[in-house]
Nucleic acid binder design. Structure first.
Length: 310
DNA sequence: ACCGCACCCTGAGCGC
DNA sequence: TGCGCTCAGGGTGCGG
């Protein structure tokens, strides 16, 4: 019995953003930007899109850095282009053999992207930017362009000036891939909030979203509703280990398809079948057989096994 | 100081 | 068939 409607998979969390960074880096580093086009000003653009079109052309990409779920495109004048993919953000390569998915937002979006691709049109062969394509980066060498598409516009784009302090980056806690048991222990002391809320709090640890939080909590045997302050030392250790495990596995499975075209319907799917609890409420726990449950914590749906997680 | 929650946004899926 | 309603999610900002 499914209590919640099927929603999009592949919401970009740390592993998806990291895979995206690895795929994108060789396509960006060393190239000089030329034409840059954007959609209309909206909340999507923290920096006015007209300024992006004015400032970006001529810049050379030096590096591509990830901080939590953010990507920073480091440019040769000391500025950086900050990208956040929100829920449905996608980075696409236009001008590659296929409109290659560099990072998947939701599958639905891919289907739309495919349909748009079938209509095939300039400015770049293989993909015609649609109404959801908000940023297009063209390069002086005339090679593949990079597109940022985002159906729900929860993503963000910002130009960071040389030396500029960016509050939203300064707020970030340690990267979730490197968070230690001790850091979780310290962060949780005296806190009454649910541990699930703590894991989603980017100022405590950066990069974890709803899917990996649920999966890590299951593997650590901790119920999402548990008060953070009630965690025992040993549970913080289990959580830190579980986080590293699921995030690294996420990167591996995402990374394993780097060289393959991602099927529009996501049917290659070695990936979503690895979720042990996420969106599996009503199904039997793969460890103990008990029916998995769903509860809302901090306004986010959480999935857990009432037997395995205490 | 801490924490929960509404808000933003869109499309899928459902009921009627 | 088609309309209208609900819901999901990340991050921010506000109110308690």
């Amino acid at each position: 019995m499914r209590l919640t409607p099927r929603i999009e998979e592949n919401v970009p969390e740390l592993p998806e953003v990291e895979v995206s960074r690895r795929r994108l880096a060789p396509m960006l580093i060393g190239r000089r930007l030329s034409e840059v086009s954007t959609s209309r000003p909206s909340r999507f653009f923290i920096t006015d899109p007209r300024r992006l079109r004015e400032r970006l052309p001529g810049r050379v990409v030096l590096d591509l850095v990830r901080r939590g779920k953010y990507l920073l495109v480091v440019l040769d004048d000391g500025s950086s282009l900050l990208l956040h993919l929100g829920m449905t953000g996608q980075l696409l390569c236009a001008g590659c053999s296929n409109p290659r998915l560099l990072l998947g937002g939701e599958r639905v979006g891919e289907r739309v992207a495919e349909r748009a691709a079938e209509r095939a049109a300039p400015p770049w062969p293989g993909f015609s930017p649609d109404q959801h394509t908000h940023l297009q980066l063209g390069f002086e060498d005339g090679g593949p362009a990079i597109l940022f598409r985002d159906v729900r516009r929860f993503g963000r784009v910002m130009l960071v000036e040389p030396g500029e302090e960016v509050a939203r980056l300064l707020r970030l806690g340690p990267d979730a891939l490197e968070v230690s048991a001790d850091q979780l222990w310290q962060a949780s002391r005296g806190r009454r909030r649910a541990v699930k809320s703590m894991l989603l709090d980017q100022s405590v640890l950066a990069g974890v979203g709803n899917i990996y939080a649920d999966e890590a909590l299951f593997r650590a045997g901790v119920r999402p509703t548990r008060r953070a302050g009630r965690l025992r030392r040993q549970e913080c250790e289990a959580l830190a280990a579980a986080l590293r495990q699921v995030l690294e596995r996420g990167i591996e499975t995402g990374g394993s398809s780097v060289d393959d075209f991602v099927a529009p319907d996501g049917s290659d799917g070695s990936y979503q079948t690895e979720h042990l609890v996420y969106q599996r409420d009503g199904q039997p726990c793969q460890r103990c057989g008990r029916e998995l449950e769903r509860v809302v914590v901090g306004g986010r749906s959480s999935h857990y096994c009432p037997s395995c997680q205490r």
